[in-house]
């Protein structure tokens, strides 16, 4: 609303990808490329974080957080089932049944809103499509009506049919799915670098949990990542813009020094209160792909959520889901021509 009325504040918080690009593409953000060069941001900020706030070669925000996703699991559940973190996709799949046999829900995902289950879908897609095709699909440069997409939906259907998700998961709230993990009643969940803090905030002990990278078996083995940033209003008074940039950098420093989430800065000290952050950051060293709901245009994201649900509810076959995704991509592209 503020963007439409041209009454945006001097700076605002947003995510990277298609969420932040909306403001940059419509000329509402200050181009920070020169400031970044003058102040040597490349020596201060993680390259992945800078890449994710850059649109058409222009840095359009001060990065504050770089989040990396991973599969979190309660150690007690894995111990009880006699399991260790999987290193291959086949091992991951075999563990799902073993976890179910041990009496827990293997996959703690809640599809209300779509985005939570999407975190599993995108890992499956990375496994079946590989990094190159996955990136092309997200950029809408390749057809979604592809065997890799069909296989991804087939897996979602298979896991649903085998009862690996919580009962009625298509309308389970993600926080309810998280509760299953805290209570050590589920096998695994896909969460990010913030999850150590979330577990503690909910009153549980985060040392009882561990995390592994989803075994995509691709080279490079990439993690799902996304950045958070402050964008600066391109129409504000220059003095206010400078102050806003300084405030953004101050907050980024404050986050770094005080260990709030995962800083976007390089060599940030990791707090003892967040024991799993280092492992997650390391998992992204080989590379990352932008999380799907920020990589795809929002109306295509919505179609993906619909496709996940319809495949799970047997309203669409996996092949139909892939076709519908491609239709949505084409509709979006024709509208933007």
């Amino acid at each position: 609303m503020a963007a439409s009325a041209r009454t945006l504040p001097d700076m605002w918080f947003t995510w990277g990808g298609t969420l932040g690009s909306f403001y940059a593409d419509n000329g509402m953000t200050k181009d920070l490329t020169q400031i970044a060069a003058d102040q040597n941001w490349s020596a201060k900020y993680n390259k992945a974080a800078l890449d994710m706030v850059t649109y058409n070669g222009k840095i359009s925000g001060v990065p504050i957080h770089l989040n990396v996703m991973g599969m979190w699991y309660p150690k007690s559940v894995y111990d009880k089932a006699g399991l260790k973190a999987p290193t291959t996709f086949a091992e991951f799949e075999s563990q799902l049944q073993k976890l179910k046999d041990s009496g827990v829900t293997p996959l703690a995902f809640g599809s209300k809103g779509g985005w939570h289950t999407m975190r599993l879908t995108e890992q499956l897609l990375e496994h079946f499509a590989g990094p190159q095709l996955h990136d092309k699909l997200n950029a809408l440069d390749a057809s979604w009506n592809d065997p890799a997409v069909v296989k991804t939906f087939e897996k979602l259907k298979e896991y649903t049919d085998k009862g690996y998700f919580p009962k009625g998961y298509s309308m389970v709230d993600p926080t309810e799915a998280e509760a299953l993990i805290y209570q050590e009643q589920a096998g695994m969940i896909n969460e990010g670098t913030w999850f150590d803090g979330t577990i503690t905030a909910e009153g549980f002990d985060n040392s009882k949990f561990d995390v592994f990278s989803f075994p995509t078996e691709q080279t490079p083995q990439r993690a799902s990542v996304f950045a958070e940033m402050f964008q600066i209003n391109g129409e504000s008074d220059p003095a206010k813009q400078d102050a806003a940039v300084r405030l953004g950098e101050f907050i980024a420093d404050y986050i770094t020094k005080n260990g709030h989430g995962t800083p976007a800065t390089l060599n940030a000290p990791v707090s003892d209160a967040t024991p799993h952050v280092s492992a997650l950051l390391d998992s992204a060293k080989a590379g990352g792909f932008l999380i799907t709901d920020q990589a795809l245009p929002q109306e295509v994201v919505q179609k993906l959520f619909e496709a996940q649900d319809k495949v799970a509810l047997k309203e669409w076959t996996p092949a139909q889901a892939a076709e519908e995704m491609e239709k949505a991509a084409q509709t979006y592209k024709s509208r933007k021509k």
């Binding site: 599809s111 209300k112 809103g113 298509s170 929002q298 109306e299 919505q302 649900d309």
Partner: peptide, 26 residues
């Protein structure tokens, strides 16, 4: 339900919200 599952509970107001504010299709 947020309009789900599989958009099955969408109504005109909710779909109008999605189109206008989520997809920016004014």
């Amino acid at each position: 339900t947020g309009g789900g599952p599989a958009e099955s509970t969408q109504v005109l107001s909710s779909w109008m919200y999605y189109q206008t504010f989520k997809f920016a299709n004014i």
